[in-house]
Amino acid sequence: MDNDESFNERLMSRRGWRSEFRAAWALSIKTWQIELSYPLSILWFILMPFLWLIPMVLAGSAVSSGANSASLADMTGISDWITYVAIGTALMGLIISTLWGTGMTLRREQNVGTLETLFTTPVGRTTFIWGNGLHNIQHGGLGVILQLGASILIFGVTINAWGIFPALAVVALLVIGMQGVVYAVASIVLVAKQGWMLVEFLGSTLVLLAPLSYPLAVLPPLLQMAAAGSPLSWGADAFRNSLVFGLAAPGLIQSMLMMLLLDAVYLLVGGIVYKTTHRWVRSRGALAQF
């Protein structure tokens, strides 16, 4: 570092996906450091997955006298409704963490005044989004493990160990597709003062259209058709079927192919929306405003 000029030039020469990944990793670690500096966050992190599952289990037990549901078995081939709901809710935790996490992080950077500073660094504009995504996957992923582990111990949920690998592949495809939605969420947060309403609407609609705690068969036909256009709908069934039936999960390949196709569309559309929005915000000079 003796030669100042050459130090900056050396940094300039470090480009490409590896340097972007390093920046994304730094973003992810920084968010962990900040989250963990609030003691309540740790408690929330541990309790959160259960606090979503428990009301679901309670609501289910109000209409079913035992652990098995004949009606659910008819529609899905899975009779153990607690297993069905527990796996779906665990995945929902991951999705909500991915969707809200990025929006929340950008919003927090805006609120505390660091967003402009971040945008003066040479990190790629989209890296901020998937860098935060990286954190949310770690965060949400740990939540899934925690919730499924506890569901096995407390509610007697059973999981087919052979299904873990295909389930991970499904999650990977799902996370990629969700990045497209995350770009859209980030755009909303950058632009709209009252954007939370739209984010809430978007998130809740995606969750409603996905077979997380109920099969799509109970939805009205119009909504069933709309559900086919969401990677989350395909991903939720594929993830659950993998963990319940293992490698013999029905429709696994078809679901993964559909997810690949939808991922491409979502990423493309989300990416374009984000880039356009970011440009618009810069032309308005409104990055620091909220």
Binding site: G60, V63, S71, L72, Y214
Partner: peptide
């Protein structure tokens, strides 16, 4: 989601 889940689990009974 609650209503749909209760419908799916409870069925006609």
């Amino acid at each position: 989601p609650y209503l749909l889940m209760m419908t799916a689990i409870g069925g006609s009974a």
